[in-house]
Design a protein around this nucleic acid. Sequence first.
DNA 1: CCCGCGTTTGAACGGCGGGTCAAGCCGAGC
DNA 2: GCTCGGCTTGACCCGCCGTTCAAACGCGGG
Lengths: 209, 209
Amino acid sequence: MSGSTPKSKDRHQEILDAAARVITDRGLAETRISDIAEEAGVSPGLILYYFDSKDRLLSEALTYANDQFYLRMSREIRRIPSARDQLRRLVDLSVPGLLPEYGRLDEWALWIEVWVRALRDPEMAKDREFLDQRWRGQIADIVRGGQASGEFTSEETAEELALRLASMIDGLAIQVIMEDSQVTPEHMRRTCMDVAARELGFALEPVAT
Amino acid sequence: MSGSTPKSKDRHQEILDAAARVITDRGLAETRISDIAEEAGVSPGLILYYFDSKDRLLSEALTYANDQFYLRMSREIRRIPSARDQLRRLVDLSVPGLLPEYGRLDEWALWIEVWVRALRDPEMAKDREFLDQRWRGQIADIVRGGQASGEFTSEETAEELALRLASMIDGLAIQVIMEDSQVTPEHMRRTCMDVAARELGFALEPVAT
DNA sequence: CCCGCGTTTGAACGGCGGGTCAAGCCGAGC
DNA sequence: GCTCGGCTTGACCCGCCGTTCAAACGCGGG
């Protein structure tokens, strides 16, 4: 499998991967350099041989992980023909824990860490703005496609509609990842599609069950 | 004014207030006991005389601050007669930095800290669920009122509508507090009311400017 | 076979900060 | 005015962790 041979690829990347994994399940605040080293199967010293400081490593790891997620999702969506189906897939991929195949615990946990950090760290703030706008851009592209093909009848700008959908998804995902008893993954999925249908102007086919 | 005499009120509360202030502008991760002590004008030792540990203090401070915000908003909204105006006011109060009179930097910064912490701390998770549900409950009450009075024509349950509005507000508030260049406070306000009008079923009066 | 250099190790350092504590302060009650 | 007990102080302790560093490792080239 990928990355099984010890010294194969880029150590840099191996460490970023390990860091992302550790942050995801311990949380940024509880992440020690030694944890990352252990996860990566190397000595603590080596971490600082490849990165200038813990802070830089953590920031890089956060954006790196979000990058991965974006690329995976983007690649997958591009090959879906219908805008409505693209949207449905995007929503499914965004619901924490809906599709067990994807992601470890959850990319959303990392997003929240990014937000906290971006509040005080200008470097992270810049990265965050880029990531968030790219995320909305992805949605806007889908919307534009749907408007062009006539699947969506709304006359609002794609950017405004994308902002609404992205905000909705963000807000709901937070509740889901927190395991709020009133907001299940399935509930989030339905709510997102409901609102999308009304905002974009398309009909939800009647759902079974 | 309130709290000006040194030993007047409850030290407990004074410390919680100070803690909330420090967390708001330094961030949870950069908050030291000595910072809180300094902010409260007492010695570091005293902090741990009143609280068992730093962790407990921080958790209490977070929920305390959110409590304050909720109570203030709740009290104010209760005296507004029209449901539509209640909603408008709730939105205005929720937009970070829209009304300079209220709040220090922003209650939203604290929310994000709560979320991060709730991901790993079961105690905080419980508090968070309570706070979030109360927040949605507040919105649901407004919605119910509007449905009863005929101001809102949507037939959806108040709970579902409240979830949608709350999620939308959360998602947008995050972007605003991050100072995303594409999401200004004013933009958030308009978007919230737009979506609310469509979801709840009421007409926005024509806006000046 | 040996050299040299990039990589890797893990022991050691140093500072930071949470938590402890013995000692003072001060007001209330006698 | 004295004593008692709750408040308050700030110096101190101690473990933790980011960072440094000297030494070892191992591979490719000569």
